[in-house]
Computed example of a mutant assay.
Amino acid sequence: MRNMTVRESILKTAARLFYQQGYSNTGINQVIEQEDIAKSSLYQHFKSKEDLLLAYLHLTGAETLARLKEASEHGGSPKQKVLAIFDYLASSVTNESFHGCHFLNIVYELPHDASRVRQQVKLQKESVRDLFRHILGPLENEALASEIYTLFEGALIGHKVHNDSWPVWAARAVVEKLL
């Protein structure tokens, strides 16, 4: 395994802190301290805290989409692929290191005018919706893909509110009936 670059190491630390304690509660000085680097090193790679956040969201979006695609490969039919994604989600929310959806957590914290960050969150969310469209393509029902995407997002929100897996299982049951 190759060594991480300074940029990758900073991003990894910031990602962990943003996810565990939130964007607003994570200061640049905390990242610098945990990385044991000079402030100039951080700013050499990221011009602002928002740029660091955008890099985190971009990286996490790619990782999340890859995991969802991988989960879908456990199914053969479109229905089985979609249900496999919900099974993956159900498994994820029971993991003690799961603190909710990275993207929803961030969007809840930010003011409405944080347009660059909101755009990055929207891109990630659209990639998940596109995954459902792709999987359900053979059914030629784009509206159904959007409905299932909405159930997926609702399951994430329900889990965050209730701190329980039942919203994911309830959404999965609805998906199974729809398909």
Rank of each mutant, 00 (worst) to 15 (best):
A84I: 07
H102W: 11
K81Y: 04
G76W: 00
T94V: 12
R118A: 10
Q119W: 01
S127H: 01
H112W: 08
S115E: 14
A90S: 15
L123E: 12
N95T: 11
I106Q: 09
Q124H: 14
H112E: 15
F98A: 09
A62Q: 15
D113L: 10
Q120T: 07
A90Q: 11
S92F: 01
N105V: 06
D87W: 03
R118T: 08
L83D: 01
S127A: 15
V107Q: 13
L68Q: 05
P78N: 07
L68W: 09
I106N: 01
T64M: 09
A71T: 06
S92R: 14
L57A: 08
V93Q: 11
H99E: 11
G100R: 09
L89M: 14
L123F: 06
A71R: 04
H102C: 02
S92V: 15
F98Y: 15
I85K: 05
S115R: 12
S92L: 15
C101P: 04
H99A: 09
I106L: 10
Q119N: 12
H74D: 08
E126I: 07
L57R: 02
L110D: 03
K69I: 13
S77H: 06
C101R: 00
Q120G: 00
K122Q: 13
C101K: 00
T60G: 02
K79V: 05
F86G: 01
A114F: 12
V93A: 07
L89T: 11
V128Y: 01
P111H: 13
H58G: 01
Y108H: 13
A55R: 03
T64K: 10
G100I: 10
K125T: 00
V82P: 08
V121Q: 05
S92D: 12
L68S: 03
F98P: 08
G76R: 01
L68A: 12
F98L: 07
P78R: 11
C101M: 00
S115H: 13
E96S: 13
A62C: 02
F86T: 02
L65Y: 06
Q80T: 04
S91Y: 10
Q120W: 02
A55K: 11
T94H: 04
R67A: 14
K122S: 12
E126P: 01
I85F: 10
L65H: 10
T60N: 05
I106H: 04
T60S: 15
S72Q: 05
Y88W: 15
A62D: 07
V82C: 13
E63S: 09
V93R: 12
T64W: 04
G76A: 01
R116M: 09
Q124S: 04
A84R: 05
T60R: 14
S92H: 01
H102Y: 11
V93E: 11
H58L: 08
E73A: 12
V121F: 02
P78F: 09
K122T: 09
F103S: 03
S77Y: 05
A71W: 11
S77R: 13
N95M: 08
E96P: 15
S91A: 13
H99K: 15
A90H: 09
V128T: 14
S91L: 05
A62N: 03
N105A: 07
V82I: 15
E109R: 08
E109V: 10
S115V: 13
L110F: 10
K122L: 08
I106M: 05
L110V: 11
R67N: 14
Q80D: 15
V121W: 03
Q120S: 07
S127Q: 09
A55C: 10
E73C: 04
S97N: 13
Y88K: 08
